[in-house]
Design a protein around this nucleic acid. Structure first.
Lengths: 148, 148
DNA sequence: ACTAAATACATTGATATCAATAGAAATGAA
DNA sequence: TTCATTTCTATTGATATCAATGTATTTAGT
């Protein structure tokens, strides 16, 4: 006479084994830890590295396109810029062509930090790449692209 | 006479296009938003769904193995359990066999919430699956597994 | 049994993430 | 021009994430 709504354990196992969201979140956490550890001597997290690298352009981009490139909420980008501004690695200035907007650029010091981090990224990425099956990296990137 | 250490724009483009960490983080954010939106009527986030589903077992598991299964830090799990305990969906009890440890279990109400969320997961996952190339989902899971 | 080491978890502090909301500026329609 | 709408960003509040650290308990070596 149980009123409880039970999900069979077999269903749990099926969800665990097939859920792409779970698989991606797990890989995201594991890779984030790996790159965070590797980049720590450079003073960057994986997210800060990706953000700053995306700002290394000929022309300072506004926030919207950067958030879209990183597939993150604009409010997340606003928050993520704070510690980088505080450290003097990123400059946020008003867009003279559209005073609602901001233009993001690396400072000279920011570029130096990024340059120091680049070889760490290279060796870490090469290591991961080597652990994937032949052609796995390219295939993986393509599949992930289809998700976002 | 610039002292600044410049990374070529071409390198930036290469990193953007090849970095597996960035690709996975992007996909993770996009998928999280997708499932969060879909699961909102059920009152769950994607992470809470995965966590609660992993607790739907015959025997209440301790925290360590659950954190390992989700590839998350144990301190993250401690924090993630708080709102679920507060809502009365998850029970955390002392392990009588090892008083350092805790055993995690779903409450009756928690099981009901999870049961309501399950069909949402199914339809959302089916939609994603359909957007991937033939056999893409299985291949993707395998590649992601190799990363964590 | 005693003690050192290992294990399991909690707390704190910092950053990351997004929904909801609000403000300011640009755009478009009249 | 005027005003309603849209666009761009910031703020607030809640949860997520992990490093560093601390505490309690168990385990292992003696």
């Amino acid at each position: 006479m149980s009123n409880s709504i039970e999900i069979p354990f077999s269903t749990t196992l099926m969800v665990r084994d097939t859920c792409l969201c779970l698989h991606v979140q797990r890989a995201a956490r594991a890779l984030a830890r790996l790159f965070d550890d590797a980049l720590r001597p450079a003073g960057l997290t994986n997210g800060q590295f990706s953000l700053m690298m995306s700002l290394n352009r000929p022309e300072p981009p506004p926030m919207g396109p950067v958030a879209a490139l990183l597939a993150m909420d604009q409010t997340t980008l606003t928050a993520a810029l704070k510690p980088l501004q505080r450290k003097g690695w990123v400059k946020v200035m008003e867009n003279p062509r559209d005073r609602r907007g901001r233009l993001l650029s690396l400072t000279t010091e920011g570029k130096a930090v990024l340059a120091k981090a680049l070889p760490i990224w290279q060796s870490t990425h090469a290591m991961i790449d080597g652990n994937l099956p032949e052609g796995g990296a390219a295939r993986l990137r393509q599949d992930l692209q289809a998700l976002s």
